[in-house]
Write a protein that binds this DNA or RNA. Structure first.
Lengths: 220, 220
DNA sequence: GCGGTCCTCCCCCGCGCGGCGGAGGCGGAT
DNA sequence: ATCCGCCTCCGCCGCGCGGGGGAGGACCGC
């Protein structure tokens, strides 16, 4: 029985040693073939465009263009893009979200052992539906939307005004806010007025809505 | 060289044919061993408790207890719980979120081919860090929080009251709501009063906060 | 029929809220 | 020294809001 077409892999990592190690692990498998390497994001885009691999192992931190943007460019520029697996060091990295957002097919930790690495590459290459498919992408997209860039007015709020808005969004009255902040009721009214002016809100309810919609309440 | 300890797998699916098919696929691999089967969620919990497998392939739709709750019970009840892979038919199933929420290690589609299935089992069993680990869990947990079960008061709101609350959450005054709904201002006040009473809010601002926090605004 | 819920609308009342202008202190920038 | 932004507080005023209670009509199920 003749060997099936091997899975063609490109490695993108700025550290030569990492590439060498990955190549050693993957080349030991008969069905895997490392066809190219790249040391920068820009190089990765170029190499993938030329070699058309099945799978790309993409490091996140790279010179020039990071792995996320490289992934983005590759997936946007090609008709039949490869499956891109993003590789990073820490699993609670914020890059995980970015990787999912731009359409990476998978996510792998650098401390994964050889079995996991090889298994992931095979799984990603073969199956339309690998672990955590479209639904997780949707999740990430939603997360990105929820953490969207806050409007300009957020930066313009002073410290006290931010505090007041937070208390407003907790459903407190002006008098209650005054007690909590240990200032006079008149002071709170002044801050509230500033908040309304800066947010463009007519009343405290609209200000609270703006606080929710802008994600203001999710920041420190 | 002696064979390493095989990966011990339990299958949970209410359809005998599915179990048979899965068993056939997995048993063909030397390093996989199907040690048990279950046809219901309750049975799955019992079987896993007794056999202590490495991996469980858990169908979502099952009699008595569904796969999600079974997963929850298994992970909660054992010290060293198995890796549980939830199996379903459609990938944009809402079960995906539930599966992640309760701590499933992976997610697999029924239409996956044999390679993908075997690869997933191996990957889940071997690696602490499979594709999409803790960070995705966090994502799902956040999603679950955002889409938390609506409080009882949501169901108690009448049609008009819901409309009014929605308009309140859009930042409209009572007069504006009256114009939009083409009713008298007094009517709106009545509805607002009902909303405040049912939500337990002191004022419209607290009602709007409740609407946001409860996810009321995301329902039709 | 008769109770129940829902929608509609009315009254009065008190008060929190928001808009207005003014004022003093304090710290940093020029 | 001067300005400016921020925080603090004061008064006054109008009004929207929320609480309370009442009332009529439409629809539904027992």
């Amino acid at each position: 029985m003749t060997a099936p077409a091997p899975i063609r892999v490109v490695l993108a990592d700025d550290e030569r040693m990492v590439r060498t190690a990955l190549r050693a692990i993957l080349s030991a498998e008969a069905d895997l073939e490392v066809v190219g390497e790249a040391a920068t994001g820009a190089e990765a885009v170029a190499v993938v465009r030329e070699l058309r691999p099945d799978v790309v192992l993409m490091d996140v931190r790279m010179p020039e263009i990071d792995g996320i943007r490289a992934t983005e460019q590759i997936l946007a520029g090609l008709d039949e893009p490869p499956r891109i697996v993003v590789v990073t060091t820490f699993e609670n990295d914020s890059y995980v979200y970015d990787a999912l957002r731009v359409g990476a097919a998978g996510f792998l930790l650098k401390r994964s052992d050889a079995d996991a690495l090889v298994g992931a590459v095979r799984l990603v290459a073969r199956s339309d539906s690998l672990l955590f498919p479209a639904a997780v992408r949707a999740l990430a997209a939603e997360h990105a939307r929820a953490c969207a860039a806050p409007p300009a007015w957020v930066a313009r709020l002073t410290g006290r005004e931010s505090e007041v808005l937070r208390h407003m969004a907790a459903g407190l009255t002006n008098a209650e806010i005054a007690r909590r902040m240990e200032v006079g009721a008149a002071t709170v009214k002044t801050h509230v007025a500033s908040v309304l002016a800066k947010t463009g809100a007519r009343d405290r309810t609209q200000a609270v809505i703006a606080a929710y919609e802008s994600g203001f309440l999710r920041n420190p």
